Amino acid sequence: MRMALIVGINHYEHGGSLYGCVDDAHAVKAVLERHGDGSINFDCRMFTGTGPTDRVDRSLLKDRVNDLFTAQTDIALFYFAGHGHIEATGGYLLATDSRRGDEGLSLSDVLTMANNSPSRNKIIILDSCHSGIAGTPPAPGNLASLAEGLTILTASSAEQYATEENDRGVFTTLLVDALHGGASNLTGDITPGSIYAHVDQSLGAWEQRPIFKTNVRQFVSLRKVSPPIALDELRRLTELFPRQGYEFELDPSFEPESKGRDADMPAPVPENTRKFAVLQRYNRLNLVVPVDAPHMWHAAMQSKSCRLTALGEHYRRLVEKKRI
């Protein structure tokens, strides 16, 4: 069972309003509810603060976070988009009725609830200013304190603001893109780590810097999408490359096209052309490269070979260990 609590607050009674947080919450809910093939993923509950009659007060926010992290689930995910505050006593998530920064929900309280949660995996994703302090005690020099199975992903460091662009949070826009498949691996899995890498690589050195903290022992997939290559073809890595460092020998019989073929070259062999089609798909995914040839076509026509890249060898080992 997977549960997600999704909160987006635009309206603040005692502070400046935001514009993209509610839309961001809707976008996160939409992508988390289903896997790429339409099958059920997270059971989502969403709360939004859009105005005086649609609000997320501090008591409601704290109660719902507590409900999430006291449930016994495979994954408990908390997403928050709204104002954040930091001071000497730590960081806070501001609710609709917060009159001042320290009247928000304390991130120390959120961390305590998550650390004590019976859920196997706990994911906290924060798109708020100064959210990078989450998981770190306020005293200078203290290290983050995360229970096993807890991951925190934040839009910015403790010192930075989380920015909006085109009425959407910059961080959440990248987060949603990652969940839609931008951060998937070759098996179609999207993990917290791959999401962080996607967001981190998309932001420049002068922009807000995302923060990633984790203490996990097992692979955690937040969403599955269609893989870029069929898994049965990926599993053929060990058939075509039976050992590390192996080079697959090619010749013109692997190339199906007759164009550019000399008269003394062997004709295409259907079994070989089928293998070559798989090798070319590996090449497009940076799993395989030709040896001493600019392209796979040249490698075949010049009777060269191809070999696995470091990424290809990684997936070959996964197949060999029956992990794919």
Rank of each mutant, 00 (worst) to 15 (best):
N142S: 14
S305P: 02
E33L: 04
N116A: 15
G38Y: 11
E320V: 13
L105Y: 08
R243H: 11
D74E: 12
L94F: 07
T238F: 08
D63K: 09
R120S: 09
A71R: 05
D97A: 02
I40A: 14
R274W: 08
E257L: 09
T70L: 10
E103K: 00
V220M: 10
I124E: 03
M265A: 15
D67T: 13
A300L: 11
M3A: 13
G169S: 07
M46I: 14
R168Y: 09
G312D: 02
I75A: 03
S128K: 04
D292P: 09
L186D: 12
A81K: 01
G141E: 04
L234S: 05
N272M: 14
A230Q: 12
V269F: 15
A144Y: 03
P266R: 08
S131D: 05
L68N: 03
G90N: 00
K213F: 12
K275N: 13
F276P: 00
G141Q: 07
Y161C: 04
E33R: 06
R168E: 12
G193L: 10
R316H: 08
C21E: 06
K321N: 14
M265W: 14
E159I: 14
R317K: 14
F69E: 02
S194L: 06
Q244C: 10
G182F: 02
E87Q: 10
S119Y: 07
D251V: 05
A178T: 09
